[in-house]
Simulated assay, not measured.
Amino acid sequence: MREAYLASGLTLSDLSVQVPLAKSKLSELLRGIGLYPRWEIVSRLAALLRLPHVPLYRLWRQAAFEAHKSREWVERSTDNTTALTTSPAAPPLDHRAFCELVEADYLLYAQTFLIDDTACHNAVGDTFDILWLTWNEALASPDTRSYAWTMLRRTIMSRTPHIDGRPHFTHAAFDTAALTHLTDEQARADHLTETIALFQVMGWLPPTQLDVTVLRILWRMPTERVSELMGVPPALVRSSQHHAEHFLKSALYPTDNEGRTP
């Protein structure tokens, strides 16, 4: 919304004529500080800035709950809101086509970092809504796929626990395919210990190497599909995987690098 305001050429005085907020409060809202705004205010601003209401409302509602607003407050904030927009209720056709192509694989990526299916679907749904809001920017970017992947990663990482600035997702070790096929209890325990150690070390990989490792190693996607999803050349996928595997091996089995058996 702040970017749309800056691009609109409008001033705070222009906005305050039609939005029931003081200019100081409008400034706070557009800078993302202050109290969480009622939907009535966001809706009026969206109409003035020609932003689509549907994705913005879903994002506003989800964020309100994350800000610990009650369901009663959310419903009360929207009861008397009148639709003030002529923007379409459905996303552009090319946006919908893109989302259909990537949704299943986006969910797989989300499952690596988020604890339950609801969190995964919410994160991917919010990513698609953000893309709808910024679809023109996505199309104007050097690569729409890369733009979308950045939005997905940013959304998921904002909801992933971090330790020392690194994503912490060892809970995913309990859901690995190899673990579910093991019946011997000792084998399961050994495999789980190794997998947790792997996931802990993976959190120290640079972003591109981590994403490639998740898609290529954990979900066994072909290089070409990873390239398509992330919007990067296949050569970069292969080199990222090579560097990541070298780092993981050296971190998990340091004595191998000295020519000794661990």
Score class of each variant (00 low, 15 high):
H121M: 05
A123N: 07
A123Q: 10
A123F: 01
V124W: 06
D126P: 05
D126S: 13
D126W: 04
T127R: 00
F128K: 12
D129Y: 02
D129A: 09
I130H: 10
W132T: 01
W132N: 02
T134E: 09
T134M: 11
T134Q: 15
W135K: 10
E137K: 09
A138D: 00
A138M: 12
A138N: 02
L139Y: 04
L139S: 10
A140W: 01
P142S: 04
T144R: 15
T144I: 11
S146W: 03
S146G: 03
Y147E: 11
Y147G: 01
Y147F: 15
A148V: 11
A148M: 11
A148E: 05
W149F: 09
T150G: 03
M151P: 03
M151K: 14
R153D: 07
R154L: 11
R154C: 13
R154S: 15
T155F: 04
I156L: 01
M157L: 15
S158E: 11
T160H: 10
T160I: 10
T160S: 12
T160P: 14
P161A: 07
P161D: 01
H162R: 08
H162Q: 14
H162G: 03
I163A: 11
G165W: 14
G165R: 07
R166Y: 10
H168E: 05
H168Q: 10
F169T: 00
F169L: 11
T170F: 03
T170L: 06
H171I: 05
H171S: 08
A172E: 03
A172K: 04
F174M: 07
D175L: 09
D175T: 14
T176M: 05
T176G: 08
T176E: 02
L179W: 10
T180S: 14
T180I: 01
L182S: 04
T183C: 04
E185I: 12
E185D: 15
Q186V: 03
R188F: 05
R188C: 13
R188M: 11
A189F: 08
